[in-house]
Nucleic acid binder design. Sequence first.
DNA 1: CTATATAGACAGTTTACTTGTCTATATAGA
DNA 2: TCTATATAGACAAGTAAACTGTCTATATAG
Lengths: 147, 147
Amino acid sequence: MTNDNWEGAIAVLRLASQLVDGIQEGLARRGFNDVRPAHGFAFARISEGDATTGDVAEHLGITKQAAGQLVKYLVAHSYVIRQLDERDARARLLLLTERGRACISAAEAAAEETVDGWKSQLGPQAFTHLQMALLMITTPGRLRPSW
Amino acid sequence: MTNDNWEGAIAVLRLASQLVDGIQEGLARRGFNDVRPAHGFAFARISEGDATTGDVAEHLGITKQAAGQLVKYLVAHSYVIRQLDERDARARLLLLTERGRACISAAEAAAEETVDGWKSQLGPQAFTHLQMALLMITTPGRLRPSW
DNA sequence: CTATATAGACAGTTTACTTGTCTATATAGA
DNA sequence: TCTATATAGACAAGTAAACTGTCTATATAG
């Protein structure tokens, strides 16, 4: 049983690696070859709205300075623009450009391709179970479904 | 459906992140606070036996030079020893020390703790399904079980 | 109105990689 | 056997993304 758990643990890492590589490859195939995985998490926070560089730092678990460099890169590559915050003259609000939104869509499409691969390997029923199990583990608020 | 897949994809990343952090934290709690996640993959290859620095490089997907630095670190921290290869005077075979083997055991125990957390959240049946789904996706040779 | 906290930029350092080059050894072909 | 090419791995220098430390400008609380 111990060893089975270890195998399962390794499998989670392999799966995540497959996904990251799949998204990266799918993004490149769609013309976005200047974004790294970390940028995806920054996009996720920025797309929520009302994001400052500090917010991005907190969301990624890195320092403000590192987030500053990251945001600078995204601005330089036209994924994000900075905008003065009317309520706080120190802050610069971050907004996605059209290109930024297109990149998110591309990432979602690329992820879907990879996940579809899993679905066809598992069959629809087992895939649904997998999906629910993943959501149950990682979503603290939700309880076990009725089945 | 698209959005569900995206959520599921994110969940896989969160799960992997939970696992890596759990192993890291569990290792530190057991006194191994000088190993990084990448070292685990090196340990995995070295424990298979007959490993050279080049083998480690290939297994980790990094250059020989980078693997050389990594192995040097593991030797300096008494996890690994180098040994002359009788069959090839260029090569140095890598062997785990007692401490190296203890570190692997500690990592397995730490992984088990994390995975047990998932098990108790899911219940035994759903957990077994999750485990089988993960193994089916990441193990190309195996086909669907009988259930 | 003064003291302290926050947003984020600038400078320098660390670390985990990279490419390029080098020596020693192995192996395949004339 | 000799020579050409490939491989194991060390050394040196460069790069990218993080880090700590410090600074200015602005906000906010007493």
